[in-house]
Write a protein that binds this DNA or RNA. Structure first.
Length: 704
DNA sequence: GTGCCTCGAGTTCC
DNA sequence: CTCGAGGCAC
């Protein structure tokens, strides 16, 4: 067709067809570039098509499609939404799946607070809306910004879109000077159906479920599109505040309602666990008639002073839990079992399924965990599924754990084909043929090929360029695969990445011979690689991909050793000394230490590390940051009975202020906090000349 | 030895 | 998101 006819000569019908063609083309290119990381057309051509699309849209605004490529930036962060750092982190919630989990939750809270089993402890219970969480910041009563949750630390700025939602006030009267309201943006069933019906009529794109519709609508680059989408909002929490909203969760929610926010009408106070369960059942019964999707019930300790005492674990508050409804399940046929080989050599079975819709998502793969799971046993050998094994050809039940990860939950023995054979888990690596062995006590079988195994090598490289490691822009998983298989310009070890430009030569001929690479993209890649020749120590350690050493452990090691030289010297020295130094680090035990020592003792690994380090300038780690508090860096011991807080709480407070808490008094103890009825520890402390303070002095010290 | 709590590693789909 | 297991406190 006349693809390149001048825009001003197009008839309306031609323009419509051309816009459709461009939308497909650009969408495919976008996906290839951003999702698969394998460009299918040169950047210049992509830009030209995009300009043409925009020109046609400008001339025929009425024809602009719902899925217009000008709206659908493939999401390179730079062109997308601005980032907003949350003043108070947006956490997720721990989950409870049955009454047992719920009783444990209550028991844990009582233990932490030192409350007896029969002491009163009220909770709020409210439906958990299945939408998109949003944080709204108001200053002096004006909406300043709206941010999505993102990773909890940093979200996306969707202020212009949020401001178009009717249930989100742009101005508040009588609100605290600073007020961050948190809640859920969602779409009601009726609105969702109407939206999809309209989209179907006009040939626009329809959404699979209300949650996707809400998420997609909130992330429109053009707020006018969001305005046309029927979104709703429930407030359920808050972030930064210049003054408290109330003394209890319920009072705070009432205050928010008074300020003009919608608060879910099914929110209740429950005085006992039995009341919580009764309210859960009631919400479950009413679920089909609510008119919007919910996926459980959230319980929170009502008393905000108690919430403050309970505080947070690493990613969740201790004072709240989400009681989830049973996940949707579906039956389908297991068409095959493939074995994937991971970075550490772990052989993981993946179920290939006859595609099936589970809760609004088409699922064709699912995890089968490991060898034991297929056979119907748990890691300790106890039977699960009454010991029924899973065979290719079986009819299996699939669900999405946490509404995300597809899993095979059960098998229908009645539907098993007569010729179905038990699955023979491979004892050699399907990728490299090396023996795959299972260490005693380990639940996974691992390929012993190490770097010989192409699957392990490529997974190691993917880890190397991943987000917490070298994070090289334009060099994602797909590109790593391509370079790994490239005979002209191979990348087989991390060091190869840093010699790419040199090996390709000044004309970049080899890279440009490859599909989708032009001058610009090649230059951009080399620039991105150069930017990482200077790398912080912790990123370097994490990037090595040593088993048991994740991001946290890498930070710990970097802070302990301070420099690459010190780290390397320790690990290449005598093994006993290395073991002693490593295990002395708080948070490093014998297993991780051995894993580190083994990695540096292996000749091939060691060579790869040395070659890599030669291309890099590894930055020293910052000296451990000493928290700014009276007890930072001190070692504390508690003894006797504390009356105003429990031991667990006191310990958490002390650690939050940078102190270490030990169990017994020694010469290294800086401070002993003696509660009522302190015994031998106090005597020992005095004998050692350790400062002893009472509970009141302790509370003064921490400013409580 | 037991019981948290966290971390690490593996997983899917958009 | 979940499971298993490492690390640590009791």
């Amino acid at each position: 067709m006349e693809a390149d006819r001048p825009v001003d000569k197009l008839t309306e019908a031609e323009a419509r067809a051309e816009l459709a063609r461009l939308a497909d083309l650009l969408d495919a290119a976008n996906r290839a570039y951003y999702q698969a990381d394998a460009p299918v057309m040169p950047d210049a051509e992509f830009d030209a098509l995009k300009r043409r699309n925009a020109a046609i849209e400008a001339r025929f605004p009425a024809l602009k499609r719902a899925d217009s490529p000008t709206e659908q930036v493939g999401a390179p962060p730079a062109e997308g939404f601005r980032k907003i750092r949350h003043a108070v982190r947006m956490l997720s919630l721990a989950n409870a799946f049955d009454e047992g989990d719920l009783r444990e939750f209550d028991a844990r809270i009582r233990r932490y607070l030192g409350l007896k089993d029969d002491a009163p402890l009220a909770y709020t219970a409210e439906p958990k809306i299945d939408g998109v969480s949003l944080s709204l910041r108001y200053e002096a009563g004006r909406l300043i910004h709206a941010a999505t949750r993102g990773d909890g630390e940093t979200g996306e700025d969707v202020t212009a879109n949020a401001a178009t939602i009717g249930e989100i006030p742009r101005r508040l009267t009588g609100a605290p000077d600073i007020l961050e309201v948190r809640g859920e943006v969602y779409m009601r069933h009726a609105d969702f159906q109407a939206l999809n019906a309209r989209a179907a009529e006009t040939g626009g794109r329809t959404f699979a479920n209300p949650r996707n519709a809400a998420a997609g609508s909130l992330r429109q680059l053009d707020p006018e599109i969001t305005r046309a989408r029927p979104l709703s909002f429930f407030a359920y929490s808050w972030g930064a505040l210049s003054e408290p909203l109330g003394a209890t969760q319920m009072a705070a929610l009432d205050r928010l309602r008074g300020l003009g926010f919608a608060v879910n009408p099914l929110t209740r106070i429950c005085a006992t666990l039995d009341e919580l369960i009764a309210h859960y059942r009631e919400i479950e019964t009413r679920r089909p008639d609510l008119g919007y999707d919910i996926d459980g019930v959230v319980y929170k300790v009502d008393d905000l002073a108690l919430q403050a005492r309970l505080g947070f674990r690493s990613t969740t508050p201790r004072w709240a839990i989400a009681h989830k409804f049973a996940a949707e399940t579906a039956w389908t046929v297991l068409e095959g079992i493939d074995i994937q080989v991971g970075r550490t050599g772990a052989l993981s079975p993946v179920a290939r399924l006859r595609p099936i819709n589970v809760g609004g998502v088409l699922v064709s793969n699912a995890t089968l965990h490991n060898e034991d799971y297929i056979e119907g046993r748990d890691s300790k050998g106890a039977p699960i599924r009454e010991g029924r094994d899973i065979r290719v050809g079986d009819r299996v039940k699939v669900y999405r754990a946490g509404d995300v990860i597809p899993k095979v939950a059960d098998v229908d023995l009645g539907a098993r084909p007569a010729d179905a054979q038990p699955f023979a888990f491979p004892e050699t690596c399907p990728e490299c043929g090396s023996p795959a062995v299972r260490e005693p006590g380990d639940s996974v079988r691992r390929c012993t090929g190490g770097l010989i195994c192409p699957a392990q090598a490529v997974e190691r490289l993917k880890h190397f360029v991943s987000r917490g490691a070298f994070d090289i822009e334009g060099l994602g998983a797909k590109q790593i695969e391509a370079f790994h298989n490239d005979d002209q310009l191979p990348v087989r070890t991390p060091a190869d990445i840093f010699t790419l430009e040199e090996r390709d030569g000044a004309n970049l001929t080899r890279l440009k011979n490859r599909m989708g690479w032009g001058e610009t993209s090649a230059r951009n890649l080399f620039r991105a690689i150069d930017e990482r020749r200077r790398i912080p120590l912790h990123r370097m350690i994490f990037a090595l991909g040593i088993r048991h050493v994740g991001e946290t452990a890498a930070q710990l090691l970097a802070r302990h050793f301070g420099s690459w030289r010190a780290f390397e010297t320790c690990l290449t020295g005598p093994a006993e000394e290395a073991m002693a130094e490593l295990t002395a680090i708080n948070g490093v035990g014998p297993v991780m230490a051995q894993s580190l020592i083994d990695a540096f003792a292996n000749e091939a690994e060691r060579r790869a590390i040395d070659e890599l380090a030669a291309h890099l300038e590894i930055e020293d780690a910052e000296a451990p940051r000493v928290a700014d508090s009276a007890i930072a860096g001190k070692t504390l011991v508690f003894t006797g009975t504390l009356t105003r807080m429990t031991r667990a709480e006191a310990k958490a407070r002390a650690e939050a202020l940078g102190a270490k808490v030990a169990g017994s008094v020694s010469a290294r103890t800086d401070l002993l906090v003696a509660g009522e009825g302190a015994g031998s520890k106090a005597g020992k402390a005095e004998a050692l000349g350790v400062t002893v303070i009472d509970e009141d002095a302790w509370l003064d010290l921490i400013g409580a």
